[in-house]
Nucleic acid binder design. Structure first.
Lengths: 165, 165
DNA sequence: TTGGAATGTCAACAAGGCTGACATAACCTG
DNA sequence: CAGGTTATGTCAGCCTTGTTGACATTCCAA
């Protein structure tokens, strides 16, 4: 299983073997990526779905349910189940819209911000270590490949996040 | 929100904002990463768990159940449920060990290899496009950061995979 | 020969996806 | 203003995939 593209002009990185290693790296890395928050969530009887909701509400305070649905890519029933428990537990506040009263605008309460910070710090800490170990140029490449791997719609969401701050 | 580390000597890539963008990029990219196989799996009434089993059996033919458990990081009950359906459906063959007859060695059948190839090709195709778009240096950085993000044990598994072929 | 390892299996449970159906309120348009 | 559309919530039921706990079998190795 040597080069698969004979006469390859520096396309070694596109061999099946390199692609498979990339796939496996994504698999193993994603496990590490979620491991620390998972431990914290378990203490609160929450799951990754709660983490995602809390994360994106923190990033876009006042976002609507519909907007969140688009970002998370789940059904409203799934999201609603999670939001309901977060509101009940006093981590998220849901305010009726000012202009359009059908909409609900979502905010983290102080308690919600505390949990968000704990989760985020755990995840950022690992990311920081990985970034530091790999260096700025590797980080740039990392981000480029990830962005190229997204579906167009996901990339749109991501581009907005990059731009709006 | 400018630099968070005043007097920063080129550590801009370690700002909280950059870390958060990395976190979100992982989230969105992983969705893309699994989207294509998920579509194929749905046609066969299988899930991601089946994909993972088929993938790693293909990569290490003859691997034991216990070895697979270590790589996948799930309980034997979870894995067993998946393996059972794969064996019943004739995608995986489970051979009693030659030396140690307690062990089962797992192999893909021809049918299993066909499915594996379809899944793998879908995923590799996306990865290939991303790699091509980002270029070889970005790919190197991508892999460095992912590897640094793994837990030590996952990194060990990954290192073995890199080395053994 | 016996302890422990490797495996399989049963049962029960939970999270978190999904679909489908339906209710309500609010908005918008003709 | 009437009727259609939109945003949200909610109920019910289903599936996958993870978990624990208990127990049986097989068989290697000390």
């Amino acid at each position: 299983m040597g080069e698969q593209r004979p006469g390859g002009e520096g396309l070694l990185f596109l061999t099946d073997e390199q692609l498979r290693l990339g796939i496996e790296a994504m698999f193993f890395a994603y496990r590490g990526f979620t491991a620390d928050p998972d431990r914290i969530l378990a203490e609160h009887a929450y799951g990754r779905a709660h983490h995602r909701a809390v994360h994106f509400i923190n990033r876009s305070p006042g976002t609507t349910v519909n907007n969140l649905l688009g970002i998370l890519g789940v059904t409203k029933q799934s999201l609603n189940r999670v939001l309901r428990t977060l509101v009940e537990d006093g981590l998220v506040e849901s305010r009726v819209g000012h202009r359009d009263k059908r909409e609900r605008h979502l905010f983290l309460t102080e308690t919600g911000k505390t949990l968000e910070h704990a989760l985020s710090e755990a995840q950022r800490s690992r990311m920081r270590a990985a970034y530091r170990a790999a260096g700025p140029e590797a980080v740039a490449g990392f981000r480029q490949v990830l962005e190229a791997m997204m579906d167009p719609e996901q990339r749109r969401h991501f581009a907005i996040r990059k731009g709006e701050r």
